[in-house]
Amino acid sequence: MSDCGTRAVSVIGFIGSVFSPWYRWSGRKNPQNHVCINVATYGRGGRFTMTDRGTSALRQTASRFEVGPSMMRWEDDTLVIDIDEISSPPLISRIKGQIRVIPSALTNVELALTPDDSHIWRPFAPRSRIDVDIDRPGWQWSGEGYFDANFGTRALEEDFSYWTWGRYPTGAGATCFYDATRLDGSELAAGFQFDAAGNATSIPLPPKAPIRRSLWAVKRETRGDAGAKAKQVQNMLDAPFYSRSAIETTLNGERTTGVHEALDLRRFRSPLIKPMLAVRVPRRSKWTFS
């Protein structure tokens, strides 16, 4: 998120694009044949890009992840993201530029989201700075950043019915909450406080704080001090099964604004969703590196 609070960006690299209808229709047999660097910009002139690409578009090393025209790479202690993508309908345009993520520290925290470790969350850099330089007016800014990863051996909808996640910067570092309802009815509830050096502490969970439903009526909730209200201050991404937004809440008496996600996997399982997603997630199976 920008320091001025008016713009934000998210970038997700996928091997086995979990939200791609093409990956689902393929039977999820070859994740390397469904790769993507998803870029979304939020604020005036925001765009959404998510192109599902085939195996010929993927190149990897220990420090580089390349998908077609875009890549993520480590340069010393900085994660450099070069993007060159075409946004989805109805606002079709090229999004080209560079984002630099500078972590204050990297962590070794790992949270299993299911008892058999079929889904793992890794918050690599809970507190970072980002510099954004995209070739559109007003899209050169710096702000608060974050870098994490999820790993899984099964489809999300096979194990979960709903989850919500939030990451909030604080004077002491950053606080993350992960709450999920598994398909068998069991619950996951976890909270971590990270300091600037990357040290993590599991914290007692404050109560859940409801948030007004999204435009697609996705249920949303986060956590915060007892009696304090949480509210949306910026809508980012709104889909029939998913919401991403900037949420303001109170933690230990400190008012803070962070990024929040809610995912309704009961809706995502609907066969009606996949053709809708295919419009926003085009498939480009062939690629040749120059």
Rank of each mutant, 00 (worst) to 15 (best):
F14S: 00
S20Q: 02
W22A: 13
W22I: 09
G27S: 07
R28K: 06
K29E: 07
N30M: 09
P31T: 01
V35Y: 00
T41W: 08
T41D: 05
G43M: 05
G46M: 03
F48M: 09
M50D: 05
M50G: 04
D52G: 02
G54S: 01
T55E: 14
T61C: 06
S63E: 05
P69Y: 05
S70T: 04
M71W: 13
M71H: 15
D77T: 01
D82N: 13
D82G: 14
S104P: 12
N108P: 04
E110F: 07
A112L: 13
T114P: 00
S118E: 10
I120Q: 09
R122W: 09
F124P: 06
R127C: 13
S128G: 01
S128C: 02
R129L: 12
R129M: 12
D131Q: 13
V132E: 09
R136E: 11
W139F: 12
N150W: 02
T153K: 08
G166T: 00
Y168D: 01
A174K: 05
D179E: 11
D179I: 08
A180W: 09
L183Q: 08
L183M: 08
S186I: 01
E187N: 08
L188W: 09
A189F: 02
A189H: 06
A190D: 07
A190T: 08
Q193D: 12
D195N: 14
A196Y: 13
A197H: 13
G198D: 01
S202C: 11
I203F: 10
P204N: 06
L205N: 00
P206L: 04
K208D: 10
K208Q: 14
P210T: 07
R213E: 12
V218D: 01
R220V: 07
T222K: 11
R223K: 14
G227L: 01
K231T: 15
Q234C: 12
D238I: 05
Y242G: 07
R244Y: 15
T249L: 04
G253L: 08
G253A: 09
V259H: 10
V259T: 14
H260L: 07
D264I: 04
D264V: 04
L265P: 03
R266A: 14
R267V: 14
R267H: 12
F268T: 00
L272E: 02
A278D: 02
R280I: 12
R283H: 01
K286L: 06
W287M: 03
T288D: 03
